[in-house]
């Protein structure tokens, strides 16, 4: 299997403001969000990044999408270093997260064309790609309707389509089914599998273990900013019945170890 994403020793520390210290009821000024994180993703697989809230998943994805820089460590994507060649990395990824939004004033079509232009996609390729993706998600009927007037599901489908405007090799999805009804969530998960079948690598962050079990080839479990287990789905589940059971075993073992 060909390595496409290799993460090595990522570390990220945030300085807490007084307000954050008060919210988190701590006097500590620094918080380690990611602590020496390493893992590998291969071409044509869905890699699940699992963990509880605050484990460091979102920070890891932000680092991998070049939005923030790691304090230590690096990652290579298709051979390009995050730190040394961020533009090359950006050109090769698609990133979808609930925190990165699309301006609700514009239509799905405007967004797709605008982001295609930012990626430098030729107009004829852009038009063909838009037709395919909008047709796949049923956006074509609403492509001239402002996002503000679309349903949550249709907005999410638009965001997914826009994140694929550059036909990226690696697609990073942060909780892609959050807030979606069961039908739309199914459309999204089916599409993840479709992407894998087309040879794309999907890095999926989620806390929904059933979703991970359904679509992921390999998973990594993050707790307190550290990778506690990484491997094929069956290896991580091991003797446990489900992935969720495996997670709780790992979580309990770690907490006992800390005590």
């Amino acid at each position: 299997m060909e390595k496409i994403l290799e993460v090595t020793g990522l570390k990220k520390t945030f300085t807490l403001s007084k307000k954050q210290q008060a919210i988190e009821k701590t006097k500590t000024k620094k918080r380690i969000a990611v602590n020496g994180l390493s893992f590998t993703a291969y071409r044509g697989e869905i890699f699940g990044l699992l963990g509880p809230n605050g484990a460091g998943k979102t920070t890891t994805l932000r680092i991998l999408s070049t939005l923030i820089r790691p304090d230590e460590g690096d990652a290579t994507l298709d051979g390009y270093s995050l730190k040394a060649s961020p533009s090359e990395v950006r050109a090769r990824i698609g990133f979808l997260t609930s925190e990165n939004k699309l301006d609700e004033f514009f239509t799905p079509r405007y967004h797709f064309d605008f982001f295609s232009d930012l990626y430098g996609v030729p107009n004829d390729v852009r038009d063909r790609r838009r037709k395919d993706l909008f047709g796949r998600f049923g956006i074509d009927r609403f492509e001239e309707v402002k996002l503000a007037n679309l349903s949550t599901g249709m907005k999410q489908k638009t965001a997914i389509a826009v994140s694929l405007a550059n036909d990226p090799d690696v697609i990073i999805f942060d909780e892609p089914t959050n807030g979606l009804d069961v039908l739309t969530a199914r459309t999204v998960t089916d599409f993840l599998l479709e992407l894998r079948n087309r040879g794309k690598t999907v890095l999926l962050s989620t806390h929904i273990f059933t979703l991970a079990e359904r679509v992921c080839d390999r998973v990594g479990i993050i707790i307190d900013g550290q990778m506690v287990k990484e491997g094929a789905l069956s290896d991580v589940i091991g003797d446990e019945k489900t992935l969720e059971d495996a997670f709780f075993s790992l979580y309990a073992a770690r907490k006992v170890g800390e005590e």
Binding site: L67, S87, R90, I93, K101, L102, D103, Y119
Partner: peptide, 14 residues
């Protein structure tokens, strides 16, 4: 504030 600038910052736009 709306999070729309982050979406642009993920692209290779200088």
């Amino acid at each position: 504030e709306r999070g729309t600038i982050a979406t642009m910052l993920v692209t290779p736009l200088q």
